[in-house]
Design a protein around this nucleic acid. Structure first.
Lengths: 182, 182
DNA sequence: TTGCAATAGTTTCGACTCGCTACTATTAAG
DNA sequence: CTTAATAGTAGCGAGTCGAAACTATTGCAA
């Protein structure tokens, strides 16, 4: 019974995602590229490495490596090698990339047309499902910096107790790969 | 504001689908194949043609043609050519395919662990979103035969006024490509 | 300090997706 | 009876995806 409903809902989620991804984004990007670009445009400066993208999307480093090269060829992201750890790379989204990442999606409009309480219920319900799924699979939560247990508000600025760095206000609204629910 | 929430929810939907599809299904199937197999195992006998699968998944006939051949090579579906219209083909899911289609998914378990009212809210909310999206894009609803405007209950059996055929009870619980909301 | 072991990322391989543009076969419509 | 529409397939090119092998760097421990 409950199993039956779970099936239905999973089917709905997968179908909605599939239909949403079937949008061609001006023919420029495919779903994997769009997902990576969208993630990068919302991730903070500690969370823009290939391995973070891979972890976020449940993919592998090898696959993501190719996806990021495709994005770079298209001028949507640029790579920056780290000085501290010369193995690691951080990708930044260009202006052109940011524009594409924010371009209107039909699914967004469909969601926005719901009554506010329905939207609220959806967000909470899907959030719960995601947390449960991640807990079961040992994945990272990739939540907002601001909602992390290592985050501390200090007046107008903030501080991360895990990475031991000061944070600007805007950064606390970004995704962090070290995120841990409060 | 509302736009912001819509973005969040779309991101949740796409991420959940991506994580769910990252399950390897015993290493046998990829996401597109699983989606097609899952659809076929729930579709009624009028809705199992390549074009129906394509329409359901928002893909193209060409792509689906290859996906179905892959499934057939793996012994998960079999094709049956129609006598009435010798252009059309109907695919059936084999026992092996049905087993795979019903195999447990981590996302199902995550959903099933929610309180029943949350599950209810999710199902309704996502259903609303899907209907809105389909209306905006002109896509078919692919709902259950039983919930169709052409369906009429006749004692223990049923009748479809569109296709003008008698239906067995089990068939009314399947997906129909001609489905039109009541 | 030297010598692994772990980590970050890349490369290559093979099977496959995906949209596209032909293309064939069949059926429908004028 | 020709023409148009429909159902499905074939081949192309760019790209996904997982796996395994590989390079370069960093960490750790004897």
């Amino acid at each position: 019974m409950s199993t039956h409903h779970s099936n239905q809902i999973r089917a709905l989620i997968e179908r909605l995602a599939r239909l949403s991804e079937a949008e061609d984004w001006a023919g420029e990007l495919n779903p994997a590229q769009m997902a990576a670009l969208s993630y990068l445009s919302n991730a903070n400066r500690f969370s823009r490495a290939p391995s973070h993208v891979a972890s976020f999307s449940g993919s592998t480093r090898g696959t993501v490596s190719q996806t990021l090269r495709a994005l770079e060829r298209k001028g949507l992201v640029t790579e920056t090698r780290s000085q501290n750890d010369r193995r690691s790379i951080s990708y930044s989204v260009t202006a052109k990339g940011r524009e594409l990442a924010l371009s209107g999606k039909a699914l967004d409009n469909a969601i926005a047309s719901l009554p506010p309480d329905r939207v609220q219920a959806l967000e909470q319900g899907l959030g719960n499902v995601l947390r449960t799924l991640l807990a079961a699979q040992g994945g990272r939560s990739f939540g907002l910096c601001r909602q992390c247990r290592h985050h501390e508000r200090r007046g107008s600025a903030s501080y991360c107790h895990l990475l031991k760095v000061d944070l600007e206000p805007a950064e606390t609204e970004q995704i962090c790969h070290e995120h841990s629910p409060a």
